[in-house]
Design a protein around this nucleic acid. Sequence first.
DNA 1: ACGCGTTTTTCATTGACTGGAAGGATCGTC
DNA 2: GACGATCCTTCCAGTCAATGAAAAACGCGT
Lengths: 251, 251
Amino acid sequence: MSSSSVTSKVLAMLGAFDADHAELTLSELARRAGISVPTAHRRAAELVEWGALERVGSGRYRIGLRLWEVGSLAPRAPGLRESALPFMEDLYVVTRQNVQLAVRDDLELVFVERIAGRQAVPVLTRVGGRFHLHATGVGLVLLAHAPAEIQEQVLAGPLPRYTAGTVVEPDRLRRVLADVRRRGYAVSEQAVTDDATSVAAPVRDRAGDVVAAVSIVVQARSAKPRELAPYVLTAAQGISRALGAGPPSTE
Amino acid sequence: MSSSSVTSKVLAMLGAFDADHAELTLSELARRAGISVPTAHRRAAELVEWGALERVGSGRYRIGLRLWEVGSLAPRAPGLRESALPFMEDLYVVTRQNVQLAVRDDLELVFVERIAGRQAVPVLTRVGGRFHLHATGVGLVLLAHAPAEIQEQVLAGPLPRYTAGTVVEPDRLRRVLADVRRRGYAVSEQAVTDDATSVAAPVRDRAGDVVAAVSIVVQARSAKPRELAPYVLTAAQGISRALGAGPPSTE
DNA sequence: ACGCGTTTTTCATTGACTGGAAGGATCGTC
DNA sequence: GACGATCCTTCCAGTCAATGAAAAACGCGT
C-alpha cells in the first residue's frame, strides 16, 4: 500500500484521531494525516456525507456515528463483548469493582469493555484504547498465552516502567508469565498505578485458544488477590462457555 | 460524492457488512458494494493491512478491530456510553431487566448500549444497530423531542407495524408523542414484540437538548409502567447530570 | 479597515485507478 | 482423475479521478 493511494490517505485521516485529539480542524487533520489541505478537504467531505466523520458547529471534525456502527460488527471486540457482558455484570454485582475485558492485537492489548461503578478505583483504561501487554492483569494473561514469537517480541522490549512495581526485566517477566500459566490467573500489583491491583483470568474460545482476558481492578491497599481469583475465574469460565469452549482443564 | 470515487467505493465496502452479513467472500463483498471484483480485491488488501477489515481462515472478510477502535472515539455513541454506564448499572441492579440507551440519527435510532442480564426478556436490539423511531420506548422519547421537521418526516411514513400494538396511524402517534412530552417518559406496550413492554426517559446534554434516551424492557405480562417510571427517570436524570445538564424542569 | 490564519475553490497535469480477460486455486460431482 | 463451476488473483492499455499550488473567500481579533 503506497502512501499515495486514496485509500491510504482516507485511512490516515481516520487514524489521525485519538483520545487526545478527538476533534480536529481541517488543517490539523491534514497535517496529522500527512496530506495536503485541499485533499483532506475533499476526502473529508465524502467521509462526512457517509457518516464516518461528523462536523460540529465550530467546523471541527470528529469521528462519526456511522463508523462506530460499522465497527460494532467486528467480532473480536463488540461481538465478544456481547457474549461476555452478562458474566461481567455478575462479577461487577458481586465485587462492585472495575471489571475489564481485553483482547490481544499483535503486540498490544485492546480494551473491549469496562464496567466501572462510581465507587470503583480510577483506572487509566479507555474502551477502544490500547496498552502494553506486560503490566496489566489482562495483559499478563494475554501475553502468557500468546504464541511464542509474540512473547519473544514483547520480551525483547522496550518494556516501559509505570511504577516501581512494574516488572520490566525480561527474565523476571518470563517467570511471571510461567506463574500465570501455572496458576491459571494473573495478579498485577501496583504495576500500572500505585493505587490499583488487578486480578485477571483467560477467556477461551471453541477451539480452546485464549482469545481474551477478564479482570477486576481494586484498591491496592485492600486487595486480596487470592480471595478474588475464584470470582474472576468463574466469570472467565462462564464467558468461555458462552464462546463454545469445553470444560476447563488443567493446563 | 460520485459513486466512481475511490472513497465512495471504500465506504461502500465497509457498508456492505451488516448483522446478517458479518462475514463476506470477496465476490459477495464486491457485489454488495456494487464494484468489480478486482477493484474490491485491491481495496480490501489495503483495508486489511490497516486493520479496518480482517481476513479469516476461510478467506472471508469481516470488519476489523482497528475500525472499532477508531469508532470508539465517536462522542455520540461510546463517548456517551461512558457517561451513562454507571447509571445504567444502577438501574440494572435495581430492576434486573434489560437496560438500553439509544440516540437518534436522522430518522432512525441507533442503540448505543444495552445491559442484559441472563434472566431478562429477549430483545431484538443489537448495540450498533438501527431501528425505527415510532415503536420502541427509546424511539418514542427521541421522536417526541426531535425537531419538528424530523417528526413530520417520520409521521409521513412509512410506519411499519410489528405487532397488533404498534401505533402506525399518524394522528394517534401524534397524540402518543404529546403524551410522552407531557408525562416526561414513554411507555411502549407490546409495540415491537408481543412479550415486551419498555419504559423510556430522555437524557439531556449541557444545553438542555434531548440527546439520548434510556429505557428498561420488561415482560409485558408483569409490566407496571407507572411503578417503573421513577427508576428510569432517575437514571435518565443521573446521566443528564453527568452530561452537564442543569436540574430537571417541567417542560 | 486591516492583517492573519483557516477554509474553500480553481485548473492543468498526471499518476492512480479501472475492469475485462486470462490464469490459478478450490471444491464438488461423476 | 477429469471436468465444471465458482471464486480469487494478476495483468495491462486506456481513462479519468485525484492532485496541490495558487487564488479566492471567509472569519476573527485588533
